[in-house]
Simulated assay, not measured.
Amino acid sequence: MTSELVTVSPKTKIFDAVDLMKKYDIHRLPVLENEQLVGLITEGTIQEALPSKATSLSVHEVNYLLNKTVVADVMITEVKTISPDAQLEDGIFLMRQNKINVLPVLEGEKLVGIITNNDIFDAFLKLTGYHEGGTRVQLKIIEDKKGVLARVTKLLADNELSILTIIANHKNNGTIVEIQLSSKETDRIKEILTNAGYEVIRAVTTNP
C-alpha cells in the first residue's frame, strides 16, 4: 500500500482537489473529516460533476458554479476498504468484484494507506523478482508428487545457485514451476536441470 497520503476534507473546493491531483500526479483522493474516512473523490467523479459541453451557461457562470462546488457535493460515500493485515489477493478480489481501482486501507477507523492498481502491479513485479535480474527458468513437472520442489531447490543449492523467487502454477496437464535465479549463467543452469531429468520449457537471462 501507499502510506504517504494526500487527502482532502469535504469542504475542499473542487478546483483545489484538481490542483492536488496534478501536483502529486495522482487520480483519487481520500476524504477525511475529523480524521475519519467519509468518502473518496476521483478524476471520474470530478468529470461527471463538470457541466456538459452542451450547456447554455456562459464561461463565467460555469466558473462561478464550480467555485461553489466542494468535494462533499461529488465524492463517493460508499467506499470499499480493506485492513492492512489482509492478504494481497483479498484486495485484488475485492477490487475485481466491485470493479474499482482503489482501496483505502483502514486500521480500525484510522486511514493508514491506499492500494491502487499500480501498487498491485508493483507488488507482482517484486514477487516475481523482475527487478533483480539473473535467470528465469520454467520447468514442466508432469508428475507433481510430494518433494518435487525440495529436490529441485536442493539441486540448485548443490550447484551454488541462489533462488530469488519461485512460483508453482498447477495445470491440468502438469505443473509449471517458474524460478528466478540470481545467476546469469543461463546455459549452465539449463544444462544442470536438463541433465537431472527436468523438462526445461524456457530459460532466459533477465536484466534489472
Rank of each mutant, 00 (worst) to 15 (best):
M1E: 12
M1I: 12
S3P: 00
E4R: 08
E4F: 01
T7K: 06
T7C: 10
S9K: 05
K11S: 12
K11D: 06
K11Q: 15
K13M: 10
I14T: 11
F15E: 01
A17V: 04
D19P: 05
M21I: 06
M21V: 07
M21C: 06
M21W: 04
Y24P: 10
R28Y: 00
V31D: 08
L32N: 07
Q36T: 09
L37D: 01
V38E: 07
L40E: 09
I41R: 06
T42Q: 05
E43Y: 03
E43C: 06
I46A: 09
Q47G: 01
Q47H: 09
L50F: 00
P51H: 04
K53R: 13
A54Y: 10
T55W: 06
S56M: 03
S56A: 02
L57G: 08
V59R: 07
V59H: 05
N63F: 02
L66A: 07
K68P: 03
V71W: 00
V71P: 02
D73H: 13
V74L: 08
I76R: 04
T77Q: 10
A86R: 05
A86Y: 00
L88R: 13
E89A: 06
G91K: 11
I92M: 05
F93D: 14
M95C: 13
R96W: 02
R96P: 01
Q97C: 09
Q97S: 14
N98M: 08
N98S: 12
I100Q: 04
N101M: 04
L103S: 10
P104H: 02
L106D: 07
E107F: 03
E107R: 12
G108C: 13
E109G: 15
E109D: 15
E109L: 14
K110G: 13
I114S: 10
I115Q: 15
T116H: 12
N118A: 13
D119Q: 08
I120A: 11
D122F: 03
A123R: 10
L125D: 08
L125E: 07
L127M: 11
Y130M: 14
E132Y: 10
G133Y: 09
G133D: 02
G134T: 02
I142M: 04
E143I: 14
K145E: 10
G147Y: 00
V148H: 02
L149V: 14
R151Q: 09
K154Y: 00
K154I: 01
L156D: 01
L156E: 00
N159V: 13
E160A: 12
I163M: 01
T165H: 03
I166C: 05
I167R: 04
A168R: 15
N172R: 15
G174F: 05
T175A: 02
L181C: 09
E185K: 11
T186P: 10
D187L: 10
I189C: 07
K190Q: 12
G197E: 04
Y198V: 06
E199F: 15
A203K: 01
T206R: 04
P208R: 12
